[in-house]
Amino acid sequence: MNPDLFFQYMLAGITYGFLYAIVAIGFNIIYNTTGIINFAQGEFVMLGGMFAITLNNILPLPLAIAAAVVITMLIGALLEILFIRWLDNPSVLRMIIITIGLSILIRELALHFWGETVFSLPYFTGNELSTVSILGAKVSPQVLWVIGVSIIMVTALSLFFKFTFTGQQMRACAANRLAARLCGINAKNMVTFSFMLSAGIGAVAGSVISPITYTQYDIGPGLAIKGFTVAILGGLGNSVAAVIAGLLLGLIESFSIIVIPLAFQEAVSISILLIILFVRPHGLFGRSDTASLKEF
């Protein structure tokens, strides 16, 4: 294989990879504060894209995206307050079922509001034909937007968790909820906040990927499954690991077409998920002893 083609496959893989990673990070944030997997994460991505597209009719693109992110964050908070917050010491299973229910509910509402139609945001720079040449391979400038935005988001998140007071409080809740509460941290507020944060991240992702993948009311579950695979692959709760795992899965998917027909691409990622769940349930980068501390 000549190097041009190699990079062409690689860039395709990296695009998929970052896409999956952003969804996985959304899973991780909520997992860290609550110990649950929020299966409505894919719907946040869809909502972000849809709101941005709708608002773009009346607002310039950057404002439309910003507004879409804020709206989606509010929806995230609202969902948590309405459906999770008031539960008295709920079991993990119960909360997971609730999020599955929410995901179906959001999808049906989106179908009602936006219908079946496939929408997309305009390309941030250039149009459908614009290409950028990198190492002999050609990609859409939007791919660079996806990669850039993802890197900025991951960096900002790490800084947020490390250096801001709220971030530290959230980490305290993740480490030991009871101890955090004894120190006077309002754990319930932290959970609400984690829903807002992951909704916001999902919405940003939904907006940047929209020109590439299009946005439709039912894109959520597909993204959620890929994101979940990546989150598990990297080790639940670890955002940097999620990026690495995302890239790994993206590259495997992209290069797999050389030997396996495209029709089996989904099978490849599901097989990886199953293998990881059987062989290394704590993920590639997680430690089994810490994983066993979390209750499933």
């Binding site: 294989m1 083609l5 496959y9 395709a12 695009t15 590439i212 998917e253 992209s254 290069f255 029709a263």
Partner: peptide, 20 residues
């Protein structure tokens, strides 16, 4: 010859294969 998923969101790896 390739078959793609009707719900595909990106086909750049397929295109690369053809280009190859």
């Amino acid at each position: 010859n390739e078959v793609y998923d009707p719900k595909s969101t990106d086909l750049s790896s397929l295109v690369t294969k053809f280009m190859a």
